[in-house]
Amino acid sequence: MPGIGIDVGSTYTKYCIAEDEKILKLFAEKTPLRQRDYFERKLEAFKEEYPGAMIFSCGYGKSNVSGIKSVNELTALAAGFYKLTGESGTILDIGGQDTKIITEENGRLKDFFINDKCAAGSGMFLTNTLELTGVSFEDIDLKEAYDSELRLSSTCAVFAQSEIVMMIADNRTEEEIINAVIRQILIKAKPLLEKTGEKSIYLSGGLSLIPGIAPFAEKILKVKCKIPENGIYLSAIGCAFMER
């Protein structure tokens, strides 16, 4: 029996199609504004292509995927990570809305930490910065990131915004600014990470797609950082293999 997992994120919705304990397909689409209509059509298409499939959803927009079971995103993340890697571990997930850290043991959620309501600690901060600087997400590359001395001093995204505007006026490069923002997002995650006491973690979520993010994050977080393959699909995978 096929299993389909849908992780409805603020920016992208991730899908996993699975059957017989194997992942058949992984893909992502931009989460539209009119979510209910979109997911209605999506589910109809899935029911046609994969009759009898068990479908689970998770994520902030999961209530818009009506008529199917939903799962907690963190539970799905734990299950998906274990499915993919067979390992127990700690995962730092920086998404569009927030930053989460989970510890997972044999596929079960063991503990979790979520940052307070603060845009400076989430992907939204980066999204807004990309808009200001006119850089697209796909163009970010931290592989050659040098240790620029440029730092954001504001702890709040709202104040940091004005700092960024001044940096642009001061002719700082887009690269320097974006590096400073990503650094700040990771710094915000540090106190949560320190609560786990872990020395080695995995990165997932949108930020994990950035080339060079692992060594960059290691320098800031002072822990070993690895990126699981298909890191952005972990929750969707967890949903697809959710126990019936």
């Binding site: 907690n72 995103e73 963190l74 539970t75 927030d98 079960r108 959620l109 063991k110 979790f112 979520i114």
Partner: peptide, 13 residues
């Protein structure tokens, strides 16, 4: 806040 996310995860735990 993030109560829904945290409480669901807590319930699963």
């Amino acid at each position: 806040g993030k109560a829904a996310l945290a409480l669901e995860a807590f319930a699963d735990m």
